[in-house]
Design a protein around this nucleic acid. Structure first.
Length: 316
DNA sequence: ATCCAGGCTCCTG
DNA sequence: CAGGAGCATGGA
């Protein structure tokens, strides 16, 4: 009698169509995703975004592609996994809408950008871009901590190491998709092993502390998301390992706040220094002063500068 | 060797 | 409350 090495689990799949407020440039979004160093689990190929995620209590694979245009955006979301039902698909759709900011109206930002010729030029050249969210807030926090005070390439390696040490994976019709570890997995991270994988002592401490905080409820992303911007900022800064830069970064990239700016960010300072002809990095204060022109939409503006910066680093 | 990299904590004054 | 020392790690 033959025994297969692994029990095969039947994969189910469901699809839903998602609209978006125009203009929405899915290709530009994918372009950002392809060169963003933190995107280690996302797979962007053939005009399609794919990534495994835990949502609605299940591990699933999300696959997103466009069947519309910039001015009439239409996306198709496919959800696959061993146990797909209506509930999971609905949750996945909510998550994707939030991640890609499908319900956000770019008009007020585009209008505000016109007040600053330098920003207006970048917006005009690059196109319609929204500050898309890091799909998993826990992943966003850990990424920003791993990225503190080190270069992006190295931060990426640390992230890959973390996934290797405590992440898991999902297999869909023979393809393997990595899953970012959840707090319960990170809280048990072996400090010695992490040190061997080039984590600094602080990074180990912060990462585990945040995992623990999420498990015991002291950190609550949903509550922060619902709070006033000022309170969310302070709530984040109260967490060990999160300073102002990280908090402002997370407001934009994980909690959906449109008007924050991590002015101390080296990438921002570099891109802005160049764009405004300073012949050096802008200082944090200079960034804060300049950013007043984008009030209400500073996070949206920052996102453009980051894309500029990535295009400088990784021209494609 | 020295400086830089998408900083943070903690201690001063 | 602003400023800065000290910290930690790898890469160019």
């Amino acid at each position: 009698m033959e025994i297969s090495p692994k029990p095969t689990v039947r994969t189910h799949r469901a699809a839903v169509e998602l609209g978006a407020v125009a203009p929405f440039d899915f290709d530009l979004t994918l372009r950002y995703m392809r060169i963003w160093p933190a995107a280690v689990l996302e797979r962007v190929e053939n005009g399609r975004y794919r990534r495994a995620i835990h949502v609605g209590g299940r591990d699933v694979l999300l696959s997103l592609h466009s069947i519309g245009t910039r001015t009439r955006p239409r996306l198709v979301l496919e959800v696959s996994g061993p146990a797909i039902d209506r509930f999971v698909v609905a949750q996945a759709a909510v998550l994707v809408r939030r991640t890609f900011l499908l319900d956000a109206d770019p008009a007020p930002f585009l209008k505000a950008a016109q007040a600053d010729p330098v920003l207006a030029e970048v917006v005009g050249r690059l196109g319609a871009l929204r500050p898309i969210q890091i799909i998993d807030p826990f992943e966003a926090v850990l990424w920003s901590i791993l990225g503190q005070q080190i270069n992006l390439a190295f931060a990426r390696r640390l992230k890959l190491a973390l996934i290797e040490m405590c992440g898991s994976h999902l297999e869909i019709s023979g393809e393997r998709f990595g899953l970012f570890p959840r707090p319960a997995q990170v809280v048990n991270l072996d400090a010695r092993l992490a040190r061997e994988r080039q984590f600094s002592r602080q990074k180990v401490e912060y990462v585990k502390g945040i995992a623990a905080g999420l498990l015991n409820g002291r950190i609550d992303f949903d509550a922060l998301r619902a709070a006033a911007p000022e309170q969310a900022l302070n709530g984040l800064i109260a967490i060990k390992g999160i300073g102002r830069w990280t908090a402002e970064y997370l407001l934009i990239r994980a909690l959906g706040f449109p008007d924050a700016i991590p002015a101390a960010d080296v990438g921002l300072r570099k891109a802005i220094g160049k764009a405004y002809g300073m012949d050096r990095n802008a200082t944090e204060d200079e960034v804060r002063v300049l950013a007043k022109k984008w009030a209400g939409w500073r996070g949206w503006a920052a996102f453009y500068w980051w894309l500029e910066r990535l295009l400088m680093l990784y021209p494609i």
